[in-house]
Amino acid sequence: MQHTMTAIGDGVIRVDFAGEVSPQMNQQIQRYCRLIQGKAIYGVTELVPGYHTITLYYEPFEVRYNELITKLEKLLASSIGENIQEKGRLLQIPVCYGGEQGPDLHKVAERHQMKEEEVVRLHQEPTYLVYLLGFLPGFPYLGGLSPELATPRLQEPRANTPAGSVGIADAQTGIYPFTSPGGWNIIGNTPIPLFDAEKKEHAFLFRPGDRVTFYEISEAEYNQLTLKDMQSDLLWEEVISIEKENRSEL
């Protein structure tokens, strides 16, 4: 997959991949990120995956951009064919749709002239991909929403969207890690915490490149899960499974 590397500011290099945004492109981005992170390159402070980019931050007083780009290009070229694929993670997220938990389900259904049950069914159908995290700490941007459910953002954003809210904005779906103002159409809520600040780098349920499915739970099941007051690790263990096969290498 073709890419270009440009310094867009002092301390910022942008790796831009050519072509359509796709799960394959995302896989390539995750692969490059792992490769670069695995080498602990002098001067590089962090990487931020985007839909068709990697934004790489570096310390300009430790390394010059042109030296760094040469080094990175060499590293990427030498790694072609090298198998550094990690086993993919699949996360199965329980969601209580509609009612108090999903105040906008009704509106989304009305807009698309379908029954609420149909929206719920369509939302559970795909296996989504976490393209990136952004907007709020731990907020996953999920690609793969059925085009039939694409819905513009709320005209008036809510002052408070509760933690766990599952929403739709345009062609994307996502989950609010904590209560925050927001303009997404909220169709349900998950009792699984997305965020545990105590755990430092393992503080977030989602990682870029994860695959995600949703399954419906009843209000009673929802309440039971919230009442369980379980440690986030135990709940997380229940939703995360490691895929048996490595996904094909590009």
Binding site: T45, L47, P137
Partner: peptide, 10 residues
């Protein structure tokens, strides 16, 4: 905060 931007942490 450095190192957590990939998780959406500003």
């Amino acid at each position: 905060r450095k190192g957590y931007q990939q998780f959406g942490v500003p």
